[in-house]
Amino acid sequence: MPAVTPETGGRAFEPGLRPTLELSRVTKRYGQVAALTDVDFSVSAGEVVALVGDNGAGKSTLVKAIAGTHRIDGGEIRVDGHPVSIGSPKDATALGIETVYQDLALCDNLDVTANLFLGRERRRAKSALLDSEGMESQAKAIIADLAAHLPTLDKPVSALSGGQRQAIAVSRAALWGSRVVLLDEPTAALGVAQTAMVYDLVRKLRDRGLAVVVISHNMADVFAVADRIVVLRLGRNAGEFDPLTARPDQVVAAITGSDAIGGAA
């Protein structure tokens, strides 16, 4: 095995580079229904992997298994090469895995800073009081760092647009996720300009050295941001593609199963 070089800088298909998150032969059943069967999946630091598939292909189940909402029935999850057990969302966040849900999970009545620190508020030293100023300053820093275009941080987020809300959810993941960020359909409800902004944010997450997983239906999304495309079909691996060489119709064929070809090398 070649020497592991953690500073390879990112792009996919580095043979021998140990993935940040690795799932092997993962199985998940809901009663009689097999939602995932022997699924292999991996993502490395500084890489964006698109997870695609039709409805019912098992994308959401896989995300839930990684995010800790559902426990897997079989197979193994490794983080930085170490086998881990993810039984709750707390376990996932403790491992540095953050999820941006499709419905964003923001509190409309709270301001940007409060949403970024939701459930993980900072306190002043030796006091039960909130460190509001410290949190605001850190929130400012992360938002400037990601160049997420947000107006003042002390407005309730109900006053913000869909793209701005998505930016808050992504910034929250960037603030807390030290290893992996999962984004579930991040552009589902967005306009053209806002979608471009989200692509930009996703690339910035990657450039910060995070392993990024984007779940999407949208081929334009997938080819715009992904370094690698993983296709699931009926709960099984159905191919893997390099967006630089693959054509969208090949990926679509793998998703629908209309053609036997698969890029799995």
Partner: peptide
């Protein structure tokens, strides 16, 4: 404000 978001935030 958002019970489900609060729950997911731990």
């Amino acid at each position: 404000g958002n019970r489900e978001a609060a729950r997911r935030a731990g």
